[in-house]
Design a protein around this nucleic acid. Structure first.
Lengths: 341, 341
DNA sequence: TTGAAAGCGCTAACAT
DNA sequence: ATGTTAGCGCTTTCAA
């Protein structure tokens, strides 16, 4: 049997307006009445009807704010595609998505972006941001104010966010290591690690997972050097060239962040295209390198689904479809080779 | 600006009732008026509001019929999970899903199942069925009657179905071949193919894609023998044992259908666990074999998403959200190894 | 053949 | 602090 606001109102002996006030915590209701209604709602298993709400309040849509460090980072193109897909799909159910794009990872800039979204009246936020104390505090504060916060692509530790939507970086790294163990082209892998930044949790996890899997699978290897690209192709190319020239023995390059194109350029320049090169994420330029056989395989993380499901989760939370305890949405760890790009 | 039935009614100088009759082809409307309204709807880019329709007609939900040959085939467990997820999610938008499960691929049984779904008033059908002339004709007939038909997991050729939701079997086979080319453990692969049935298009495509990729990537190989398991573990085990005993040189087993567990049992019995064994789909028992290192990798096809999106597409078609020309929904071809199972 | 009106579940504005 | 009412977009009577 369907339970509606009317059902609850009749059962509690109050008007529908009062029930609405209680369920949304707006307006003042006598505490004992409020409690009675809340109990009733739980007992009856009341779930709001999305169609009803959408129709009634479509002139005051749920505003969902999104923050992405997407300027100058093609990775987020697919995330944005997913966001737009969800935006269109849910538009007639009454949502409005405000997308705020920033460049890089400046704490102040991120904090200000969050503030501006809140000021615009967003009742839910989907954030791809940095794991630093200031942001952590800000997020917890927002949660306490009843704003739904969802972390996208990168989690922020120790927060009361609703959930995380993104990939499992450790697993992604481990999958790389496991793949290498199956190839076993050479007796020992001498590895150059080109990471984006040592400050990026995801990048570090990709390295840790990788090393652990190599160890677990009995692959003999050593990390010759680890360089940082700051996610820049030019820096990646320079540092890769330098390392490869200094260490003739390197027979494997492991790229954890952006700058893949730069690494590819270095490999081509030195004619080391037979060397085992591995990277993450399917940017257009990266795919080209796989097709050319320079990168042997990549691990991807379904960025489009991340964007889509972040918005979907935000809507579901605002519409009362899901409770305050939800599982994280972890996207698949996908191995891509020439054949299934 | 939003275009509603009211907008159209005013523009055409008729009542909302008339517009509704035209848009849904029910009741009689003067042809010239009907044409005028249809033209207007197209010009204005009218898209029905799902919430409005759901609310108004929630006592007469869209009935969506589903046919799966899922009895005795664990593969479909995940498909059903996806169907149920969509069912719940769209329930308050007014859908009702009727699931019909059959065993195997008997044409008459499938045809009767389809009939019973239609008789129950289903206005959309999601079918996982066989590619034979009788079914083809039946599907086309249903399409002409205005019933939305979506093929799931296996397509039926030359039909006017709305779309196909499932995997690209050829690509899946090619991905296997490409993986093998990267491993290159042995100078030449002597392959035993254990297929489900030569009558299954998908199984054949998995073989064709595989051979082509091996050829394209310059892998030297020969197909020692091809046996049919009829998707039975017992038959698969028997035939695999026989083939491996007769042909000592076999160093690769390629399993295109069900019966993976049977093949695994044979490999264990003969202690040929180092041999390169490859299979499809992540049934629980298959995953166990991967974890045990007996199957080296598997290729999966996101069955849960297939179930979910079949229902979603059906709803979207019935609700007028998508037109009669939609792209197929092809799920990803996913490589699973121990690390990312 | 067409129009008018009621009502689905919910929210917001207004009234008490 | 609580009740009442109107109306969102759509479908479905019932009436003309």
């Amino acid at each position: 049997m369907k339970v509606t606001v009317k059902t609850l109102a009749e059962a509690a002996g109050v008007s529908r307006g009062t029930v609405d006030r209680v369920l949304h915590g707006r307006g003042a209701v006598k505490p004992e009445v409020a409690l009675r209604i809340k109990t009733l709602a739980r007992e009856f298993g009341y779930v709001p009807n999305r169609a009803g709400r959408a129709l009634a309040a479509f002139k005051t849509p749920y505003k969902i704010g999104t923050l992405l460090p997407s300027i100058g980072n093609r990775f987020f193109d697919d995330v944005i595609t997913g966001i737009n897909q969800a935006r269109e799909e849910y538009s007639d159910l009454g949502i409005e998505v405000i997308l705020k794009e920033v460049q890089g990872f400046d704490v102040q800039e991120h904090l200000e972006a969050v503030n501006s979204l809140v000021k615009k009246g967003c009742r839910a936020l989907c954030l791809s941001t940095i794991d630093v104390p200031e942001m952590r505090e800000r997020i917890n504060e927002l949660c306490d104010r009843g704003i739904v916060v969802i972390l996208v692509n990168t989690d922020v530790s120790d927060t009361r966010r609703l959930c995380y939507v993104g990939s499992d970086y450790t697993k992604a790294g481990a999958t790389c290591g496991c793949m290498l163990s199956m190839f076993a082209h050479v007796p020992c892998y001498h590895i150059l690690v080109v990471t984006g930044s040592r400050l990026m949790l995801g990048h570090n996890q990709r390295i840790e997972g990788f090393k652990k899997a190599l160890g677990d699978n009995g692959v003999s290897y050593d990390i010759v050097e680890t360089v940082e690209s700051s996610d820049s192709d030019i820096i990646a190319q320079e540092k890769t060239l330098k390392a490869l020239r200094e260490h003739e023995e390197i027979n494997c390059v492991y790229v954890t962040g952006s700058g893949v194109q730069g690494v590819g350029a270095a490999l081509i320049a030195l004619q080391k295209t037979d060397l085992m090169a591995i990277a993450f994420d399917d940017l257009y330029t990266t795919k080209e390198l796989v097709l050319a056989g320079i990168i042997k395989f990549i691990i991807t993380q379904q960025p489009q689904r991340q964007g889509y499901h972040a918005i979907k989760r935000a809507y579901q939370a605002l519409a009362g479809q899901i409770g305050p305890e939800v599982d994280d949405f972890i996207t698949d760890t996908i191995i891509k080779i020439k054949a299934n790009l």
